[in-house]
Simulated assay, not measured.
Amino acid sequence: MKNIKFLTGIFFILAAFTFTSCDNEPIDPAIDLDDFGGGGNNGGPIVFKADFSGSTWNATTAQANISNGLISIIGARGASGEAFAFQILGTATGTYPANENLLVYTPANSEYSYWSLDVNNGQTNTGSITITEINTQNNTISGTFNFTGYWSDSTVSNILPTVFTNGVFENIPFTTDGPAPSGDTFFAKVDGVEFVEDQIDAALITQVSGMPDQISIVGSKDNGDTVSLNIVRSLPVGTYQITGPFGEEVNGKCLANDLLYTAQSGTVTISTKTATRISGTFSMVVQNFTTSETKTVSQGTFDVEYN
């Protein structure tokens, strides 16, 4: 398998997981993260921490998003891209296998990450994440996680997997996506069948320090199926190749029947672009890591406002 560069860092997760642009929620530095209990249903202190390599890691900012059949969560520390980020294929409380979802830890100043999938055997049990509470009154989410992370640069053989234990996130504020801006259009065929979306979401994703901002475009159905693109904001009009699931300029994905398919190849053409609107065409071949099944997305078009 090709090296999986997280040049978009933890923000691939945010963009791919259709985060809307918003400020990270700060964690009060005066709070002793080990000296409190739960509190999700009363707006208690925000916590995001995990144990690995003999110490406890604590986030300084955290945020989440629930939309398009997905839960997305990030806990970050500092301005060097160090963060945990999760994408969960579901929107309810419960326990989700780590190898069937995406749990990622990116060290500071790194192009690569530890992620919850053994690329040599997608069936390997790498852990789990449990959503214990989704508080719709305070718009907060809480849970626990434990997973074994595999280094994403497959050409390096001397970096062993890292085990992340005692992971806890509590009272993380979440947002949900609103309706698409008026006049937006989106079209695609998946394996020759028209993807008839119920909603179009487009947003400017502001990345962590040193990472390029992205435009996220998502067509979604009420049943949770999605077809989506991520385009680096600075790209001008032109045609760009999708070089893999973590391409440096453009990438895409599909969610179908609760399975995530990431783009392995394809093209995205930007036809027109302003400071708030973008249009173009796209096609791609997407693949599910676990089953190796592929789908072909063709005749894709988009014309959306983003902000």
Rank of each mutant, 00 (worst) to 15 (best):
K2F: 14
N3M: 13
I4A: 08
I4E: 15
F6G: 09
F6C: 03
G9M: 04
F11R: 08
L14G: 05
L14W: 00
A16R: 03
A16K: 06
F17H: 13
T18R: 10
T18P: 00
T20L: 12
T20H: 02
D23T: 14
N24D: 14
E25D: 13
P26G: 14
I27P: 08
D32P: 01
D32L: 05
D34P: 00
D34L: 07
G37F: 03
N41T: 15
N42D: 10
N42C: 07
P45R: 03
A50F: 10
T60M: 10
S67D: 08
N68T: 04
G69P: 10
I71R: 08
I71K: 14
I71M: 11
S72E: 13
I73T: 06
I74E: 05
I74K: 12
G78I: 04
G78R: 03
G81W: 02
A83P: 03
F84A: 03
F86G: 13
A92W: 00
A98M: 05
A98H: 07
N99C: 08
L102Q: 14
V104Y: 01
P107N: 05
P107W: 05
A108V: 00
N109R: 10
W115I: 02
S116Y: 02
N120W: 00
G122W: 02
Q123R: 02
T126L: 04
T130M: 01
I131H: 09
T132R: 13
T136F: 10
I141M: 07
S142L: 06
G143M: 08
T144W: 09
T144R: 09
F145I: 05
F147V: 06
T155Q: 12
V156F: 01
P161W: 07
T162N: 14
V168P: 08
V168M: 11
E170Y: 07
P173R: 14
G178E: 09
P179F: 04
P181H: 07
S182F: 06
G183L: 05
G183R: 11
F187I: 06
G192F: 07
G192D: 13
E197N: 15
E197V: 12
Q199H: 11
Q199S: 15
Q199A: 15
D201S: 09
D201M: 05
A202V: 00
A203L: 00
L204Y: 11
T206S: 10
T206A: 04
Q207L: 01
G210R: 08
M211R: 12
M211E: 01
P212Y: 10
P212A: 11
P212R: 00
S216W: 00
V218K: 11
G219F: 00
K221C: 04
N223T: 06
T226G: 01
L229A: 06
I231G: 12
S234W: 01
T239K: 13
T243V: 09
E249V: 11
E249C: 03
E249K: 12
V250I: 10
C254T: 12
L255D: 03
A256P: 00
A256F: 15
N257H: 02
L259D: 15
T262G: 09
A263C: 05
G266W: 04
S271F: 08
S271C: 02
A275N: 15
R277T: 14
T291D: 09
E293A: 14
T294A: 08
V297A: 11
S298D: 14
Q299S: 12
G300W: 06
